[in-house]
């Protein structure tokens, strides 16, 4: 598969994403500079973390107007998976590709630590290889990761099964307040759009793809995308067992 890793001035997880995809997932991955206006030839798009354009004004506020974001919007409309991590999630929200917004952490401090994440649905190209209820461990590192949306949007998200991952206690699997690193509503860590091909999350799967880093759980998210692209469609929602390859 060929992944595009978008590079904004100020992206700083671009290299981490590229290396996770190439070295740990054995995929093709290329940087795409923010001044580029086409994403032709890529199977999937990753908007990595960092501080695009310095994140001045609001996170992602300036990035959404870059030429490459127009291309990302076109790509998203065509259906291939678009996947935003951390600052990438903020940019996708600012661009209107995902509902809601990310505001300053409740603690008002940057927070960098490992969190527990519960997979809430397997019905998405990003979680299709992970059974519902699985607890993943991966780091967060952000100052503005508190997920916010109005009542109606939140209800919509739940109705349409768009919350893909939630912050939970890694031992009990419960979405308790102590496990919420930033004050996100309903412990939401990541959501997808109604069409289910655009996904954003605050935690960093790119930082959890190698044993050296203490967790390889991030691979399962990337693997879901790879499986989807390879034509292994997501399993039906109630079916916890994935169809074997080629079946």
């Amino acid at each position: 598969m060929r992944f595009a890793v978008i590079q904004f001035p100020g992206s700083n997880c671009d290299q981490d994403c590229l290396h996770a995809l190439r070295d740990d997932m054995a995929q093709e991955a290329e940087y795409v500079w923010h001044k580029t206006d086409s994403l032709a030839g890529f199977d999937a798009v990753v908007v990595p973390g960092g501080f695009s354009y310095g994140d001045y004004l609001r996170c992602g506020a300036i990035a959404r107007f870059s030429p490459v974001m127009a291309a990302v919007k076109t790509a998203a409309a065509d259906g291939p998976p678009v996947f935003g991590v951390c600052n990438g999630f903020q940019i996708l929200c600012e661009s209107g590709l995902l509902p809601g917004a990310l505001i300053r952490n409740r603690s008002l401090q940057f927070v960098c630590e490992e969190v527990g994440l519960r997979v809430e649905t397997s019905d998405s190209p990003f979680t299709c290889a992970i059974p519902v209820g699985t607890i993943l461990r991966m780091p967060v590192a952000h100052g503005e990761g508190c997920y916010f949306a109005d009542h109606e949007t939140l209800r919509d998200l739940e109705t349409h099964d768009q919350v893909l991952v939630r912050y939970v206690d890694a031992k009990t699997g419960e979405p308790v307040a102590a496990a919420n690193p930033n004050g996100s509503l309903a412990n939401i860590a990541g959501v997808c759009n109604r069409e289910r091909n655009v996904f954003g999350l605050m935690p960093h799967p790119d930082r959890a793809c190698n044993r050296r880093l203490g967790s390889e759980d991030g691979k399962r998210i990337f693997q879901s995308v790879i499986d989807t692209l390879a034509g292994r469609r997501p399993a039906p929602k109630d079916d916890a067992v994935l169809a074997p390859v080629g079946a």
Partner: peptide, 11 residues
């Protein structure tokens, strides 16, 4: 150090 990004660059 939870305020420092001590994990970026994945090393």
């Amino acid at each position: 150090w939870r305020q420092y990004d001590h994990m970026v660059r994945t090393g």
